[in-house]
């Protein structure tokens, strides 16, 4: 499996993703500077977390217009997988690759803590190794994670089954008290219509090894590998 992680100025979770994917899947992961080329065809491209361009103007806005994004669009057009984690999710919405926007948390401030989310479906490239309704711990670290989309558009993405992860309690119940940032419909992770793009606020790369106290994230990377190998 060929994986690339793109580094924008201000990205700071790129090395974490490289480490987690390398440790779990034992495959080569290329770290690519945003002004460089993607090179040979990749199976998965990851836009990592951090503060691209210092979050200036709007989170992810300038990274979304970075030169490499032209190649990234071509990659997804050909059916390649694209994952945006945290700031990467913000880049995806700013690039128009996913609908909506990530706004300042309902209660202003940076939240950095463990977080439980529910796997809504398993027939996707990103969740085949989970069970439907499974509750996993992927930590969150953001001040702008409140997913927003006008309500009529929310109905559309719901009817298309594009919400892949929702914030929930330990037992899998959703509710405002279990929604850390006020995201609409408790959305933590959202798929594109073709299901090959995923935007995710929580960080699977931070719970990919048992030494970190939880390895739920390992199933996430293994899901992707299984899907790529079956193609």
């Amino acid at each position: 499996m060929k994986v690339a992680v793109i580094t924008f100025p201000g990205s700071n979770c790129d090395d974490d993703v490289v480490h987690a994917v390398t440790a779990v899947l034992e495959c080569d992961v290329a770290k690519i500077w945003h002004l460089d080329s993607l090179g040979e065809r990749k199976d998965l491209i990851v836009l990592p977390g951090g503060f691209s361009y210092g979050d200036y103007l709007r989170s992810g806005a300038m990274a979304a217009r970075s030169p490499i994004m032209k190649e990234v669009r071509e990659h997804v057009r050909k059916g390649g997988l694209l994952l945006g984690i945290c700031n990467g999710f913000q880049v995806l919405t700013e690039a128009g690759l996913l609908p909506g926007v990530l706004l300042a948390n309902r209660r202003p401030g940076f939240i950095c803590r463990p977080c439980t989310i529910r796997v809504e479906r398993t027939d996707t490239p990103f969740t085949g190794a989970f069970t439907e309704g499974q509750v996993v711990n992927f930590p969150i670290a953001h001040s702008e994670g409140r997913y927003y989309l006008p309500s009529s558009d929310l109905d559309v993405i719901e009817s298309e089954g594009r919400v892949l992860f929702r914030y929930c309690s330990f037992s899998g119940t959703t509710g405002d008290e279990f929604n850390p940032n006020g995201a609409a419909h408790h959305i933590a992770g959202l798929l594109s219509k073709e299901r090959n793009i995923l935007g995710l606020m929580p960080h699977p790369e931070r719970t990919s090894e048992a030494i970190l106290g939880c390895d739920d994230g390992a199933l996430f990377w293994k899901s992707i590998r299984s899907w790529v190998e079956r193609r």
């Binding site: 103007l57 709007r58 806005a61 300038m62 217009r65 700013e94 909506g100 926007v101 706004l103 927003y148 989309l149 006008p150």
Partner: peptide
């Protein structure tokens, strides 16, 4: 349109 404003919000 191209960068400075996000029309959605």
């Amino acid at each position: 349109d191209d960068l400075l404003v996000n029309d959605l919000i």
